[in-house]
Write a protein that binds this DNA or RNA. Structure first.
Length: 757
DNA sequence: GATGGTGCTCTTTTT
DNA sequence: GAGCACCATC
């Protein structure tokens, strides 16, 4: 039992609890992955359980891969049939086994968020939208129903608000459209899984699963819980792992009390708390606890550091977002020069848009970085077009993919004709390009009809080699892209360098996929490749040791770094405006989630945690001023209650850019020398309202800023043509001499958070 | 039907 | 700062 020796007593108790369901409350950095991998290995090795009877569900593919690897490492061999994966990936696999049980045929496809929204929008357009109802609200309602595991049929008996009836209609249309086009989206996939597990076809397979392990249980939605319950009812052992303080997916339907409810549903369950933190210094944990302790209704646990003291936390205050990015880039540049490895450094932010100034600053400082999440490779337009083409050829019923295909590769058939041949609502069983070859289109002119039919036959021709798999996948796809003319088009166009590279990367990826399949003794089919592409999460990218990592806090969940920088610690950014407004209206749940998010961010750090804020930040082209985040205050107020600690060794030292007028006054405090900023030519030079002069158009006023390809531009209303604004390149603009416009935007209130001065 | 310019609106977070 | 709808033009 060598493996068990590596566990501490609590971890051991959690891993080896086989006689009752166990709820493992695992704080950040307490070795929960280790505990569950040991558990899985122990089931196989010591309890002699068949690997195929174990189902382990994780939140990301990356977590699943890591878990599988670690289990294999402990066992020393690859267990056969072990079901490890994300909810979505497992469910998709099961559905693929019994497609007809859920009203699908083989080769059903999974559409992504963008395509789903496009479909929803189309459906909304076909109906009479009630006045005052925004698309966002409809989308939100449907999303929430899907998370709750509710099918449109369930809504008949389910209480809904009066203003939700239209959304319900659209939801019904939406499900019909998915059924008809043999597709599904992320949300519906889980409902299909739920339905599948209730069918006789799945009974055998369902009974096979006898041991269930669920990671990140605090973030499971009711739709996911419903699937779990199908196994919980007969499973011999159950282990759920999670941390209610790290529940950050409420907007995806996860209730913050999910863990608590598991305990209520399983009265015999044992609660095991893992509270020894092996990751962070006590300074970091203390500060993180200061933030999280404000929340009410926690299951309650207190993390104790096993690492002891570390350096103090650091704070930066920057003038604006660009300045903040530069300060960080400088600091990181220095760290790396001093020998810190790049993969020990991460910058975390609340939302993706915050990465832009960072990217500029890091490039300038010659610091290699990679963005985890953000725009995925598979989200790039050119790749999406190729994927849509492949999906369409595989699944001729997919109207969504047909529409995208025709936009990407014009065949003289536009959206109008498409609308006439592809019925998206009501009745018709034919859709997608199968609709093309059917000859009953009374609305079309004979000329158009001929065009459409020819086109349909062409697609059938393109389709055949893919279905019959006459050559390797990579060859087939290369051939297809050649026949569509895409490759020659890209060759000819100088401006499409990036796209050319992306397509090459894509083909390379297919090669890689075929190679991987070969190694794992599975056959590389197009459908399995597409599925992997669809379900690959944005955070699954492999990390690279020569680059620092940039990501949202959500994407950082489960990761750890020696140095963590959390930027944008400002009211209305973090916490978000929405959370602040909700709280003012009496609903503190979103604010509590923001607080947990800060807790997650802070506990990613092992030894060095730096928090920064900018006094003003560019929003949609204009600057907005922000007060320091209340979370900063929660940390610092607490620090002040500890007067015995001198600053140099205290938990909270301070680095602040000297503004020249007021160096901070505390004894022993370190103040960095002033940091020079050179002026940059970018949009932050101008803000809306600035008076400018253009080399040809003369004087005018900036009304907006925008990007124009790789160049930056401003939207200017010129005095000579006051009725319309013009987009002009920044290089042609100069601030009008007398202008004082930007100083008008100075803050009315700036607490200039003096951190205990 | 395709294309290109223009001016709105807007996202937190993602499987 | 991007995506989108809308319009004018070819």
């Amino acid at each position: 039992m060598a493996s068990a020796n590596r566990l501490n007593p609590e971890q051991h108790q959690a891993a080896y609890c086989f006689d009752a369901p166990v709820c493992i409350l695992a704080g950040a950095g307490t070795g929960k992955t280790k505990t569950i991998t040991e558990r899985i290995a122990a089931l196989i090795q010591e309890e002699h359980v068949a690997p195929a009877s174990i189902l382990a569900l994780t939140f990301t593919n990356k977590a699943a891969a890591e878990m599988r690897e670690r289990v294999e490492h402990i066992l020393g061999y690859q267990p056969r049939g072990l079901e490890i994966g994300t909810f979505h990936a497992r469910v998709a696999r099961w559905c693929r086994q019994f497609p007809e049980a859920i009203g699908r045929s083989s080769y059903f496809t999974i559409i992504d968020e963008t395509d789903r929204n496009r479909l929803l929008k189309d459906l909304v357009k076909k109906r009479q939208v009630p006045a005052g109802l925004a698309f966002a609200d409809i989308k939100h309602d449907i999303h929430m129903w899907q998370c709750a595991g509710l099918h449109p049929d369930d809504l008949v008996s389910h209480p809904i608000l009066a203003n939700q009836t239209f959304a319900r209609t659209i939801y019904t249309d939406f499900i019909h459209a998915l059924d008809r086009s043999n597709t599904t989206d992320f949300g519906h996939l889980l409902l299909l899984g739920q339905r599948l597990l209730a069918t006789p076809q799945a009974a055998l397979f369902k009974a096979r699963i006898q041991h269930v392990v669920v990671d990140e249980y605090q973030d499971t939605s009711p739709a996911q819980t419903a699937i779990l319950n199908q196994f919980f009812s007969h499973a011999k052992t159950i282990a759920i792992v999670g941390d209610d303080d790290q529940a950050i997916y409420g907007w995806r339907g996860a209730a913050p009390d999910t863990m608590k409810r598991f305990l209520q549903q399983h009265p015999s369950a044992r609660l095991v708390k893992l509270e020894t933190n092996y990751r962070s210094s006590s300074q970091i944990l203390d500060a993180a606890n200061d933030v999280i302790q404000v929340n009410t209704n926690r299951l309650g646990k207190s993390l104790l550091s096993n690492h002891g003291d570390g350096p103090s936390l650091q704070f930066f205050v920057a003038d604006d977002d660009v300045h903040e990015a530069r300060l960080l880039a400088d600091r990181i540049h220095t760290l790396i020069n001093q020998g810190t490895s790049s993969d020990d450094i991460a910058i975390l932010y609340r939302k993706n848009a915050m990465s832009r100034p960072l990217e500029t600053a890091l490039r300038r400082a010659r610091v290699g970085y990679q963005i985890i999440g953000g725009i995925r490779f598979f989200d790039k337009a050119i790749i999406k077009n190729i994927l849509a083409t492949l999906r369409l050829l595989l699944n001729p019923h997919s109207a969504i993919d047909l529409s995208r295909f025709l936009k990407a590769f014009p065949h003289g058939i536009g959206q109008k004709t498409l609308g006439q041949i592809v019925p998206t609502i009501d009745g018709d069983l034919i859709s997608g390009f199968r609709a093309l070859t059917s000859d009953s289109h009374p609305d079309l002119s004979p000329r158009m009809l001929k065009k459409v039919i020819t086109f349909g036959h062409r697609l059938e021709e393109l389709r055949r080699p893919l279905i019959e798999q006459t050559a390797s996948l990579a060859e087939l796809i290369q051939e297809l892209l050649t026949r569509l003319g895409l490759l020659s088009q890209l060759e000819l166009d100088v401006d499409r360098q990036t796209e050319r590279e992306d397509v090459q990367d894509f083909l390379q990826l297919i090669h890689q996929y075929e190679y991987d399949c070969e190694r794992q003794n599975t056959s590389p089919t197009l459908i399995s490749f597409l599925e992997e592409a669809a379900l690959l999460s944005s955070t699954d990218t492999a990390t690279d040791a020569t680059h620092i990592s940039l990501m949202t806090i959500h994407a950082a969940k489960g990761l750890e770094f020696e140095h963590v920088f959390v930027i944008g610690c400002e009211e209305h950014q973090f916490p978000t405006s929405q959370a602040i407004e909700d709280a003012e209206g009496g609903d503190t749940s979103t604010l509590e989630e923001e607080r947990r998010l800060m807790y997650v961010a802070m506990t990613r750090a092992k030894r060095h945690l730096t928090l920064s804020r900018a006094k003003r930040r560019q929003h949609h082209g204009t600057f907005r001023h922000h007060m320091p985040s209340r979370f900063l205050r929660d940390i610092l107020v607490y620090a002040e209650r500890q007067p015995s600690q001198t600053f140099g060794s205290s938990r909270h030292s301070l680095i602040r850019r000297r503004t020249g007028d007021r160096p901070m006054g505390r004894r022993g405090q370190s103040i960095h020398s002033p940091i020079e900023i050179e002026d940059d030519v970018d949009t932050s030079m101008f803000v809306s309202g600035d008076r400018v002069t253009h080399t040809t158009f003369g004087a005018g006023e900036v009304v907006g800023l925008r990007g124009l390809g790789s160049r930056r531009a401003a939207l200017v209303r010129f005095d000579s043509t006051p009725t319309r604004s013009r987009t002009v390149v920044l290089a042609h603009l100069e601030p009008e001499k007398s202008s004082n416009a930007s100083s008008v935007h100075e803050p009315q209130i700036d607490m200039s958070f003096d951190f205990g001065a």
